[in-house]
C-alpha cells in the first residue's frame, strides 16, 4: 500500500522560514488532521503535499518515489471555496475527471463512453447524497451540497491521498455534523489517506486517527520569521490526556 514519507522538509522564502525540519511517516489509510494557529504553516504544509509549493529542502516520498512538484491525479483536493466548476452542472462536474483521462484532445466524451462515465458519476453522486440535484448548477446548491460535490468530484479519480483544506469551515454546525459523517463513511469504505486542515480542535479529534499540531518551538521577538513552525505534537487520536489537550488549545489561540 502507499505510504508517505517526509524527510527533513524545510520551506523558506528568502529569510522568512515558514516550516522547519518536518519529518513524518504516514501509513496508507491514516486520517490525519492538522491544527495550529493561523499563519503557522499548516496551509503551506498542505500546499507542499499538493505540489503547488516546492520544498526548499528535504524529500517527499510516496511509496519511495518522490512526489511530483505539480498537482496530479494521485492527490485529490477539496478547498473551502471554489472547488467546483460553476459552468458545469453537478453530474458534469463529477464526469470531468474521467473525461480528461479518456479524451486528451477535447476533454469531452460522447456516446457509449459518455454513458459509462455517467453511470459511474451517478453512483458516486448517490454515495454523497446528491442524486436529486444531478442537473443543477453549483450556484443553485447550498454550501454543504457544494462541498459534497467537490468530494464526489475528487473521488472519481480514486486518488491515493485526499487533501481537505478547511472543507467545512464555512458551513453551519448542523450541516458540518452531516459532512463529518459523510467523510468518515467514505474514508472507511475507500481506506484512502486523508489530510485535513481544521481550525476546530474538536473536529480534529473527532475525525482523525492522528492529530498533528503545527507551532513554532522558538520565537525570536526581534525577528519573528527567524524560526519556522514544525510539528509540535503528533498524537494518535484516542489516547490524549487532558493536560496535553489544554496545551494544544493554548498554542492554537496564541497571538501571532
Amino acid at each position: 500500500m502507499e505510504s508517505i514519507e517526509l524527510k527533513h522538509l524545510w520551506k523558506e522564502y528568502g529569510n522568512n522560514i515558514v516550516l522547519e525540519d518536518i519529518s513524518i511517516s504516514v501509513k496508507s489509510g491514516e486520517f490525519i488532521t492538522l491544527v495550529g494557529a493561523s499563519g503557522c504553516g499548516k496551509t503551506t504544509f498542505l500546499k507542499l503535499l499538493l505540489g503547488i509549493e516546492t520544498a526548499s529542502r528535504g524529500q517527499m516520498l510516496l511509496d519511495g518515489k518522490p512526489l511530483k512538484d505539480e498537482p496530479d491525479k494521485h492527490r485529490g483536493i477539496v478547498f473551502q471555496r471554489y472547488s467546483v466548476f460553476p459552468h458545469l452542472n453537478v453530474i458534469e462536474n463529477v464526469m470531468l475527471g474521467e473525461e480528461f483521462e479518456l479524451s486528451p484532445l477535447l476533454g469531452r466524451t460522447f456516446g457509449k463512453k459518455r454513458r459509462e462515465i455517467r453511470q459511474h458519476a451517478l453512483a458516486i453522486l448517490k454515495r454523497v447524497g446528491l442524486e436529486d440535484s444531478v442537473h443543477k448548477y453549483p450556484s443553485e446548491l447550498s454550501g454543504g451540497m457544494q462541498q459534497r460535490l467537490a468530494i464526489a468530484q475528487a473521488l472519481i479519480k480514486n486518488p491515493s491521498i485526499l487533501l481537505l483544506d478547511e472543507p467545512f469551515g464555512a458551513l453551519d454546525p448542523g450541516i458540518r455534523a452531516d459532512m463529518h459523517k459523510l467523510i468518515l463513511d467514505i474514508w472507511e469504505e475507500t481506506k484512502i489517506t486523508i489530510f485535513m486542515i481544521t481550525h476546530d480542535l474538536k473536529e480534529g479529534f473527532h475525525l482523525g486517527t492522528r492529530l498533528l499540531v503545527f507551532d513554532k518551538y522558538r520565537i525570536d521577538p526581534h525577528q519573528p520569521n527567524r524560526y519556522g513552525a514544525t510539528i509540535t505534537y503528533d498524537i494518535p487520536v484516542g489516547n490524549t490526556d487532558n493536560r496535553t489537550l489544554t496545551e494544544i488549545t493554548s498554542s492554537m489561540l496564541k497571538e501571532e
Binding site: K73, Y82, S83, H87, E99, G107, R108, Q153, A154
Partner: peptide
C-alpha cells in the same frame, strides 16, 4: 486559482484546462 488546481488534480493537462475550464468561463 483553486479551480485551476482542482482541474489538475483531476488529471487535466494544460490544453484540457484551457478548453474545459477557462474557455467556457
Amino acid at each position: 486559482e483553486e479551480m485551476i488546481i482542482k482541474a489538475q488534480t483531476l488529471g487535466a493537462n494544460s490544453w484540457q484546462v484551457i478548453i474545459r475550464v477557462i474557455l467556457p468561463q
